[in-house]
């Protein structure tokens, strides 16, 4: 059985992505406990690429040098990784539960017959068995699972493991693509130009953020009034944006913006993991929700069980009366 733990590394520009640093954190923990080696796997970068220095937390780096892999293509990346994983048989393969990870994890798992732990919150070896914890039902429940399979894949949920970053000259193994990259089934065409935003929620000190619990579009004015009274801006969770009640530029969370305001007031937001990812680092989090079991209360500093359409106006009034 191989003693390698692989981390499929992603970059933002020339820096390792936060999700990959956290996956490296998870990998190092498992490696230290069992005398295993951590290999960061990079697709599409040259062996001499200085960006690889940001993967110093790994023991070694394996990079597939073909420039055709630099832009993420689900089909090509799966092709290459399927070949590498079958050939080198790493014991554990970790990746972020990211837009790219969601393409790679399930497909590789189906092709290789290696079990996959999605939304992985915790991971450890118990002898030869891998024990992982996955997050279900929007974070309302956790499921602990085990598998004795020879190779296990895991998509690591954001914020579950400490990010480990180290800048150093790390030993790099640079190889050519083990498979042909001809005729890809998915071809990257380019990035969309972002919509011009009416407001930049990432710059706001105070965010009054509304979720499904706000009830209807008409009630968003309740949040706007409070935001105005406090000197803040209204943001939202995904369902509110999907309903077309607020623009995409105001969305907080995995597929929206990551924010770090002084106050994040979550009104009627239950706190799905994808949302928490975008706001858990706010200085002060206040949550209002009718469901006392809502996961948002796990990350909030202060919580109120109640209807936000009642509490927001009361709060606006209380703030306004402070003169």
């Amino acid at each position: 059985m191989s003693d390698e733990i692989w981390v499929l590394a992603e970059f933002v520009g020339d820096q390792v992505a936060q999700a990959s640093s956290e996956a490296l954190g998870a990998a190092k923990r498992s490696a230290e406990a069992g005398g295993r080696r951590v290999v960061a796997v990079v697709l599409g970068r040259d062996g001499g690429d200085p960006a690889l220095r940001s993967l110093g937390a790994a023991d070694t780096v394996l990079t597939v040098q073909d420039p055709g892999l630099k832009d993420f293509s689900p089909a090509l990346h799966v092709r290459v990784l399927e070949a590498l994983l079958s050939d080198r048989k790493p014991r554990l393969v970790l990746m972020g539960n990211t837009a790219a990870g969601l393409e790679l994890g399930p497909d590789l798992s189906a092709r290789l017959g290696s079990p996959l732990i999605a939304y992985c919150r915790n991971l450890e070896f118990s002898g030869d068995t891998v024990v992982g914890t996955t997050q279900l039902y929007g974070g309302k429940l956790l499921l602990e699972v085990e598998t004795a399979a020879a190779q296990v894949l895991a998509m690591v949920a954001a914020g579950s493991f400490p990010a480990v970053t180290e800048e150093r000259d790390v030993l790099v193994e640079a190889i050519a693509s083990p498979v042909s990259l001809a005729d890809p089934e998915t071809v990257f065409l380019g990035l969309e130009v972002a919509e011009t935003a009416d407001v930049d929620i990432t710059q706001a000190d105070v965010l009054i953020s509304v979720g499904r619990g706000i009830g209807d579009a008409g009630n968003i004015s309740l949040a706007e009034e409070l935001a105005e009274a406090l000197g803040g801006v209204v943001s939202a969770s995904r369902p509110v944006v999907d309903q077309g009640w607020l623009t995409k530029s105001r969305q907080v969370g995995k597929s929206g913006k990551t924010v770090k305001p002084k106050l994040y007031l979550a009104a009627g937001i239950s706190g799905a993991p994808e949302h928490l990812e975008g706001m858990r680092d706010a200085d002060l989090i206040v949550a209002i929700n009718t469901d006392a079991a809502a996961p948002i209360f796990e990350v909030a500093d202060y919580g109120v069980v109640g209807d936000c359409t009642e509490i927001l106006p009361a709060l606006t009034e209380a703030v306004s009366s402070q003169g």
Binding site: D216, A217, G218, N219, I220, S221
Partner: peptide
């Protein structure tokens, strides 16, 4: 009851 926002 469900048209307050619309009718505003």
């Amino acid at each position: 009851m469900y048209l307050d926002g619309f009718l505003a």
